[in-house]
Design a protein around this nucleic acid. Structure first.
Lengths: 242, 242
DNA sequence: GATTGTGAAGTACTTCACAGCT
DNA sequence: AGCTGTGAAGTACTTCACAATC
């Protein structure tokens, strides 16, 4: 996961489990692909395979949204696309600001899948005066001084932090003070935010460390397996040479 | 979570829960910061605050590693740094290849926190012949043709995919065939891999959609709260004007 | 007196398996 | 006959709360 949460664990969002919410975008992507191929209906089995989950989980997930399928048939692709989009709030437009236009910020600004799903890059913000005015992904970078006015003028509620770690908390506080209530943090820091503000984090280094853990374990298991091949307690009476 | 897993859920990794493994890097980062400030010991309460979790969870997490604390005192910072590093496999060197040197690939190559923790960028690989030989983050980009020889010559077991979605599955298959067994996928696609290969995914678009869901819900709750302010069942007998 | 380490209780999520609908 | 929707069972994770230890 590359993910940090910040939700009151008590009140579950309109009865939809967090784990289900996290999978809806996955289903939506798979459904969009089917829709583009003009596939009219899909079974839980097929859709689950496309999304990389098992079908019981998918059906349970959909059951939280309502009964949108037809027994014996499956799900109507277009209808599901609409229902999930609506549930995720993608039928409205979300202006987003990206703060910190280094390599990563530029990559995010250029990321296509951004615009496609209701998200619009309202502004790119950087602390370096030399960056101000420079176009990145067709948008002129603005200076951090403008942060507050950009947020309020554009009604921005989602901010992306792609600054160095040292600047992240301060940027976060300014975003929140200006009215941002959801933050996607790429800086390798724990952000502290007031109640009611959601933070999700994406952290390359953490993901690699988790992979390293499992990678190391694989090496260990191989060694173990090799060892147990020599002298296991198998279904044969093990007689050691005296 | 910008996170996808691929683990046999039955056999838990050396008894350490996956959720715990995912937090170890977080503790390690907090501990490293303390170490740099030459703080000798830290209590579960303090460390938990720095890592953004609660202290009971942290103690439980550490209990899976062993009894590394001292009652009445806390944890020795240096010792814990070492133990967690070892557990995560960071005491060894992990050569990593990054495939797809666009904006994002370049950002990853330049990411400092990379090298700091046992990870070494062994090669940058791109399919564009025009990129070949160009230096990015001080390393000459190599052509995809070289992928197999790079992997085997450097003993690479971790690969990072930062290609467009369309190329990801094919790149993934080549990486796996060449010997990579852990993949960090930034392309917005579900990768299918054989058993024994770990995939974690980082997906900007999914993270934003999850934020949008909660953002939308906040708007809904405000409306609800406003409505219930008008006529709730509070601790006062509500007498409506007739 | 302070703080860890951990059983036990509580909560969240997953999977099973089958009744119910088309 | 096929496929969904869902209670019930199973598993994983979190939190509590306190005995053990320094």
């Amino acid at each position: 996961m590359a993910t940090g949460r910040n939700h009151r664990p008590a009140t579950r969002s309109r009865g939809i489990p967090e784990a289900t919410v996290a999978r809806l975008p996955l289903y939506l992507r798979a459904l969009t692909a089917l829709s583009e191929r003009s596939v009219p209906t899909v079974s839980s089995e097929e859709l689950a395979a496309a999304a990389g989950v098992n079908s019981a989980k998918l059906r349970k997930d959909f059951s939280y949204l309502g009964s949108y399928g037809t027994r014996g048939v499956g799900y109507d692709v277009e209808y599901l696309v609409y229902q999930i989009s609506r549930e995720l709030g993608l039928t409205q437009d979300w202006p987003v600001v990206i703060v910190g236009i280094g390599n990563l910020g530029a990559a995010l600004a250029n990321y296509g899948g951004f615009a496609s799903r209701g998200f619009r890059v309202a502004a790119l913000i950087d602390a370096d005066p030399a960056m101000a005015g420079k176009p990145v992904a067709g948008i002129a970078v603005q200076h951090t001084d403008e942060l507050e006015s950009i947020i309020s003028d554009n009604g921005v509620s989602i901010g992306v932090i792609a600054t160095p770690a040292g600047a992240a908390q301060q940027v976060c506080e300014r975003l929140v003070a200006a009215g941002v209530t959801s933050i996607l943090n790429f800086a390798p820091t724990v952000l502290s935010v007031p109640d009611g503000v959601d933070v999700r984090k994406v952290d390359l280094s953490i993901e690699l460390q988790i992979l390293a853990f499992h990678e190391q374990r694989k090496a260990g298991e191989e060694a173990e397996a090799a060892a147990s091949r020599k002298g296991p307690d198998g279904d044969m009476p093990a007689v050691m040479p005296a």
